[in-house]
Simulated scan of single mutants.
Amino acid sequence: MIVHNIALQNSVLNTFISELREVTVQKDSMRFRRNIERIGEILSYEMSKTFQYNNQTITTPLGASTIPLIDNDIVLCSILRAGVPLHNGLLNYFDTAENAFISAYRHHLKNPESFEIIVEYLACPDLEGKTLILADPMIATGQSLRATFEALQPFGTPKHIHLVAVIGAQEGIDFVSEHFPDDTHLWISAVDPALDDNGYIVPGLGDAGDLAFGKKLQH
């Protein structure tokens, strides 16, 4: 897997990451969602540099202009529910893309340290030969991305696969790398060093879904 850690080069992205992490700022759920959306836009811009382009002639009021435009057939797939703001950021830039959504959540067994990933809902167009952009804000253990990728198999084989994340733990990134094709690209805005005993990213930012949309009932 090819990892693009955008945080390695200083930019305004640092501001959005710092506000996502800062406990006093992240209490504003609207700002939290907007910062994830803005990060999605930045990662989209960087990702777009690797896409295929085709020259097209555009008619203006005073003549014509030839412009190279994206030639990829894109499908955006986000993991509910935390993936919604990130999906919006991607869709702001790839506005003609098809869309897919999947629910993948942790079902804890006998203790908080033991869990399985449950997939309950999936809506997806045909993926055969297309560019799949799979968005998950937090890559902790990486098991959600693996479960999602497996669930998408019946919809066809994408020509290109791009993963988009806000923050990931190195352990989770290594796990994902083992379960996706070698030419998969990961676009990420921060890589953290560790997971705690419950499989959450340290230092991370907490539960992205709860911070974006409020606490959920456990079942």
Results as ranks from 00 to 15, higher is better:
2 I>S: 10
2 I>R: 08
2 I>D: 11
5 N>Q: 05
6 I>W: 00
8 L>F: 10
8 L>R: 12
10 N>E: 12
11 S>F: 03
11 S>Y: 06
12 V>K: 02
13 L>S: 00
15 T>M: 02
20 L>D: 06
22 E>I: 03
23 V>C: 02
24 T>G: 10
25 V>G: 09
33 R>K: 05
34 R>N: 12
37 E>Q: 13
38 R>E: 12
40 G>Y: 01
40 G>K: 08
46 E>I: 14
48 S>H: 12
50 T>L: 13
50 T>V: 14
51 F>I: 15
52 Q>A: 14
52 Q>K: 15
55 N>L: 14
56 Q>C: 11
60 T>Q: 01
61 P>N: 08
67 I>L: 11
68 P>L: 08
70 I>Q: 04
70 I>C: 11
72 N>P: 02
73 D>R: 06
73 D>V: 03
81 R>V: 04
82 A>W: 02
84 V>T: 08
84 V>N: 04
85 P>K: 05
87 H>E: 06
88 N>D: 14
89 G>C: 04
90 L>F: 07
91 L>S: 12
93 Y>C: 12
93 Y>T: 06
98 E>V: 12
98 E>N: 15
98 E>I: 13
100 A>F: 13
101 F>T: 13
102 I>L: 09
105 Y>L: 08
107 H>W: 11
107 H>T: 15
108 H>F: 14
121 Y>F: 08
122 L>R: 00
138 M>S: 08
138 M>G: 09
141 T>M: 07
142 G>L: 01
143 Q>R: 11
145 L>Q: 01
146 R>Q: 11
148 T>N: 15
150 E>K: 14
150 E>N: 15
151 A>R: 11
155 F>A: 01
160 H>L: 04
164 V>H: 05
167 I>A: 03
167 I>F: 04
167 I>R: 02
169 A>T: 03
170 Q>K: 03
173 I>Y: 00
176 V>M: 10
177 S>R: 03
179 H>Y: 00
180 F>H: 05
181 P>L: 09
187 W>P: 04
190 A>P: 08
190 A>T: 14
190 A>C: 07
201 I>E: 10
208 A>C: 09
211 L>K: 13
217 L>F: 01
